[in-house]
Computed example of a mutant assay.
Amino acid sequence: MANKFEHTNVITREFTYQYLEEITDNFSDKNIIGSGGYGVVYKGVLPNGEKIALKKLYWKQDIGDTEFRNEFTNLMRAQHRNITQLVGYCYNLREQRVEHNGEYISVSVEERVLCFEYLPESLDKHITDISDGLDWSTRFKIIKGVCEDPIYHLDLKPDNILLDKNMIPKIGDFGLSKLFLPTQTNDTSQFAGTPGYMPPEYIDRSEITSKFDVFSLDVVIIRIMTGKEGFSREMSSQVFFEHVHENWGKRLQATMSSLKLEEVKTCIKIALKCVEVDSEKRPTIAEIVYELNHVGTAGSSPIEQVYIFGSAIHWIYIA
C-alpha cells in the first residue's frame, strides 16, 4: 500500500482524543516507539491499516488552546522533504477526579497530541563505525539532507532524524521548541535540549541564538562519519581531521574517487567550524548548504576561508 503521508499535499485533520485512544490501544506502553524532551511517541494504526506516529506532549501550564492551535497551523505550513509531515492533531480538555489528601477532587486535564507520518527507523539505529555499515554516498546524502532542514529545531540529534525507505532523512520534533521554550532566559528547567548537543552559550548563560542548531550539527555530522563512540577528548582538531580523512581514504580506495574524498574533507571541516565556542564564528546554515552543494568546484568557500586547526575537540565524545 502506498503511503499517502509521503506527499507534501497531505490533508491534516483534527482528531478526537477518544479516537486516538482507540488506535493506540489506550496509549498502551506496547505501542511506545520513542520519547524525548517534548513528549512520548506512540504508534497508531488507522482502520485502513495505515500507521501514524502520535507524539503525546508533556503538559505545560502556559500553553492554552489558542496558542497550541496557532503553533500547529505554523507547523502544518512547514512542508519540506527533510521534515516529518504532520497529518493531524488533538487538543482535549477534560475533567478528572483524583485523590488529594484523602479526598477526591475534580481537576482539569489537558491533552495535546501531534500526529505525524510513520517512519519506523531513526538515524541512530544506522550509525556505525567507518569500517562497516552505510557507504559514504549514503552518509553524505544524509548529512546534506539534515543540513537542508529549514526549521529552527533546538533538539537536533540522531534520535530525532528519521529515515524513509530511500534513506532520505526527515527531521522529527521540528518546531516544537517554540511551544516549550522557557519564559525567562535564565530558566533552564523547562527546556528540552539534550546534553552533548547544546552549545556552550546555552549551557553557561542560557542564551539561545540562531547558531544553536549549528552547534548540534557538529555532533550529528561527526557521529554519521565516525560512529557512536566518537574520539578521544584529548585529540586535537588537526589530528582528528587527519585520522578521519585517512580512515575514509582507506575504505574509499577501491573507488579511487577524488570527489568522495573531497566530500569527506568538506564534512570534517564543517563539523569543526560548527563547534566554535564563539557562536559568531560558526558558519550559518546557508553557508553550510552552499559548501555541501559545491564540493569539488573551483574557488575557496566561506568555511574554507575561516577554517583554522588547533583547538582540542573535547566535545566529540557522547556518553
Rank of each mutant, 00 (worst) to 15 (best):
residue 286 A to R: 12
residue 167 M to V: 00
residue 239 V to L: 14
residue 267 C to I: 06
residue 259 L to P: 02
residue 193 G to E: 00
residue 287 E to G: 00
residue 245 H to S: 13
residue 282 R to D: 09
residue 273 K to N: 15
residue 259 L to H: 11
residue 276 E to G: 12
residue 206 S to M: 12
residue 290 Y to C: 03
residue 186 N to D: 13
residue 215 F to V: 07
residue 166 N to R: 12
residue 263 E to K: 00
residue 162 L to F: 15
residue 197 Y to K: 07
residue 199 P to T: 08
residue 220 V to L: 07
residue 190 Q to K: 12
residue 175 G to A: 05
residue 166 N to C: 07
residue 276 E to A: 09
residue 174 F to H: 15
residue 158 P to L: 04
residue 246 E to H: 05
residue 257 S to L: 02
residue 243 H to D: 11
residue 220 V to I: 13
residue 206 S to T: 09
residue 197 Y to V: 07
residue 277 V to A: 14
residue 205 R to C: 12
residue 180 F to K: 09
residue 196 G to C: 00
residue 277 V to S: 12
residue 196 G to R: 00
residue 273 K to G: 10
residue 207 E to R: 13
residue 213 D to N: 08
residue 170 K to V: 01
residue 164 D to N: 15
residue 246 E to W: 01
residue 184 Q to E: 13
residue 189 S to L: 10
residue 167 M to H: 12
residue 189 S to T: 11
residue 186 N to F: 15
residue 265 K to T: 14
residue 202 Y to K: 03
residue 163 L to K: 05
residue 198 M to V: 15
residue 210 S to N: 09
residue 272 L to R: 06
residue 212 F to R: 05
residue 280 E to T: 03
residue 172 G to C: 12
residue 244 V to W: 01
residue 180 F to R: 05
residue 213 D to Y: 03
residue 208 I to Y: 03
residue 215 F to L: 05
residue 167 M to C: 08
residue 223 R to I: 02
residue 235 M to I: 15
residue 172 G to H: 14
residue 264 V to S: 05
residue 203 I to E: 11
residue 240 F to H: 03
residue 174 F to D: 01
residue 178 K to E: 11
residue 219 V to W: 03
residue 227 G to T: 01
residue 221 I to A: 02
residue 193 G to P: 07
residue 192 A to N: 09
residue 265 K to P: 00
residue 168 I to V: 12
residue 230 G to N: 03
residue 273 K to Y: 00
residue 279 S to Q: 09
residue 233 R to D: 14
residue 259 L to G: 03
residue 190 Q to D: 06
residue 179 L to F: 05
residue 201 E to Y: 09
residue 190 Q to P: 03
residue 271 A to T: 05
residue 229 E to G: 01
residue 222 I to S: 13
residue 233 R to A: 09
residue 238 Q to R: 13
residue 161 I to A: 04
residue 243 H to A: 06
residue 272 L to G: 08
residue 173 D to A: 04
residue 187 D to R: 11
residue 178 K to G: 01
residue 230 G to Q: 03
residue 274 C to H: 06
residue 164 D to K: 08
residue 250 K to Y: 08
residue 289 V to Y: 05
residue 191 F to C: 08
residue 239 V to W: 05
residue 200 P to R: 13
residue 243 H to Y: 10
residue 291 E to S: 10
residue 229 E to P: 01
residue 191 F to R: 09
residue 255 T to Q: 13
residue 251 R to I: 13
residue 209 T to E: 06
residue 235 M to E: 09
residue 185 T to C: 08
residue 229 E to N: 04
residue 226 T to E: 07
residue 236 S to F: 05
residue 178 K to Q: 10
residue 227 G to V: 01
residue 195 P to D: 05
residue 197 Y to N: 10
residue 207 E to C: 11
residue 198 M to C: 14
residue 228 K to G: 08
residue 241 F to N: 01
residue 164 D to A: 02
residue 185 T to N: 15
residue 211 K to E: 12
residue 242 E to V: 02
residue 224 I to A: 04
residue 281 K to Q: 11
residue 168 I to Y: 09
residue 231 F to P: 02
residue 266 T to H: 07
residue 265 K to Q: 13
residue 236 S to M: 09
residue 229 E to L: 02
residue 258 S to G: 08
